[in-house]
């Protein structure tokens, strides 16, 4: 009788308790993915020098302090901005006023005309951040769509689904994300 071993504690429910804790942590941890528009800032300019860019190669977008657009010196609309930018960049009819193209040889794509167009974005200090992001978004969308179209044309698959890195780079080279932001000027005040 004395040699009887101590009765084991029933540990069967331990797993349940641990599971409960586990599920609690799984549910409460918000793995919210940070999303945003990625941009690369230009390095600071030492002395102001005018880089000669032909007028036809520049697509001017201005946003004033009351969030209104001026696209190529005409009042613009955010809804049509994307298509305007696309049309400008690709210059499908080889218009004299739209950007020049340069013949380049790119791996996977062969000889291809690369547009020299640059989108110049300028905003006022009083522009709202919301509007600025909307404009940036529309411009990004324009480039995304152009890349998509080219990707479908050459590889038969959308750019997002393109896994081959060299092919991605080829398309990025053929359609460079040319958004330039002008040096800030204090025009409208805060």
């Amino acid at each position: 009788m004395a040699a009887r071993s101590t009765p084991e504690v029933n540990a069967g429910s331990m797993a349940d308790i641990a599971f409960l804790l586990l599920i609690f942590f799984l549910v409460t941890t918000t793995m919210d993915v940070d999303t945003g528009i990625t941009r690369k800032l230009p390095p600071p300019v030492e002395d102001e020098q005018d880089i000669d860019i032909k007028q036809r190669n520049v697509f001017k977008v201005l946003v004033n302090s009351s969030d209104r657009l001026l696209v190529e010196d005409k009042p613009g609309n955010i809804r049509t901005l994307k298509d305007q930018a696309k049309k400008f960049f690709m210059n499908p009819t080889n218009d004299e006023d739209l950007p020049e193209k340069k013949l380049e040889v790119i791996e996977h794509l062969g000889e291809i005309y690369v547009s020299k167009g640059v989108i110049s974005l300028k905003n006022d200090r009083g522009t709202s951040y919301k509007m600025y992001i909307r404009v940036q978004d529309e411009l990004t969308k324009a480039f995304d769509e152009l890349r998509d179209e080219m990707s479908v044309q050459y590889f038969g698959i959308s750019f997002d689904n393109l896994v081959d890195d060299t092919k991605r780079q080829a398309i990025q080279k053929a359609i460079p994300m040319a958004i330039s932001e002008a040096e800030p000027e204090n025009i409208g005040g805060n």
Binding site: R39, K40, L41, P43, N123, R125, G126, T127, P184, N190
Partner: peptide, 23 residues
């Protein structure tokens, strides 16, 4: 307003933090 954002961007350019993300 974009004024404050522009100021931040200018500072980032000066310090060489070029990769940015507008959340």
């Amino acid at each position: 307003r974009m004024g404050i954002i522009t100021d931040i961007k200018q500072e980032l350019r000066k310090i060489g933090a070029f990769k940015i993300n507008y959340s």
